[in-house]
């Protein structure tokens, strides 16, 4: 048998051995091993000392109130008198049964909270691109960029028109001088 002291994985064997909860076959093998292993003997002695110290913490000396049951049944009776919605609410929040309504309820509540948050944060209508300079100053960065882009195009158009006009004037001037 592999010494439990040499492997952390087997450490619980010593606990079980001390608690005498090992299967009979393992118990026999442990008995034989402990007889020859000094490390296990020391560990067992320490564990058994803790075990017997814990035995002294005997709660059986407690005197449980004789009216324990009566008080409990009174509370159960009082709960029966509660309105149906209070009982329903309690069922959701005070259930000890795993996989009850509570997780579903919590998830639903979280989903509603996220939906409300998104509705508040996300604008419902698209933002119109302002035309005036004042509006451009007040607009967010993306809108500003869009407005600046459209102004540049306008200026470029105007510049091209001006060049065309000058070209025309130039050619007209030449024709006129030729004509003169």
């Amino acid at each position: 048998m592999m010494c439990p002291m040499r492997s952390r994985d087997n450490a619980e064997i010593l606990l079980d051995y001390c608690a005498r909860t090992l299967p009979a076959e393992t118990l026999e093998r442990m008995d034989a091993h402990v007889g020859t292993c000094k490390a296990c003997q020391g560990e067992l002695a320490a564990q058994q000392q803790v075990w017997s110290a814990l035995d002294e913490f005997d709660a059986s000396e407690l005197n449980i109130s004789p009216d324990f049951d009566r008080r409990l049944y009174a509370r159960i009776e009082a709960e029966h008198q509660d309105p149906f919605w209070v009982r329903g609410w309690r069922k959701i929040f005070a259930s000890g049964q795993p996989g009850g309504w509570r997780p579903a309820f919590t998830m639903g509540l979280a989903a509603v909270a996220v939906a409300v948050f998104l509705m508040v944060r996300m604008p419902s209508e698209p933002v119109a691109v302002p035309e005036s300079t004042v509006a451009v100053e007040a607009a967010p960065a993306a809108v500003k960029t869009a407005a600046v882009d459209s102004q540049d195009v306008e200026r470029l158009d105007k510049a091209l028109e001006d060049i065309e006009m000058l070209h025309l004037l130039g050619s007209n001037g030449a024709n006129n001088s030729n004509a003169l």
Partner: peptide, 23 residues
């Protein structure tokens, strides 16, 4: 002890409340 009894009452109360959904 007093608190232990109070909490134990709450334990059994919850057991009773959960009876309908117990599996």
């Amino acid at each position: 002890q007093a608190v232990a009894e109070e909490l134990a009452q709450e334990v059994f109360l919850r057991v009773y409340r959960s009876r309908a959904t117990y599996e």
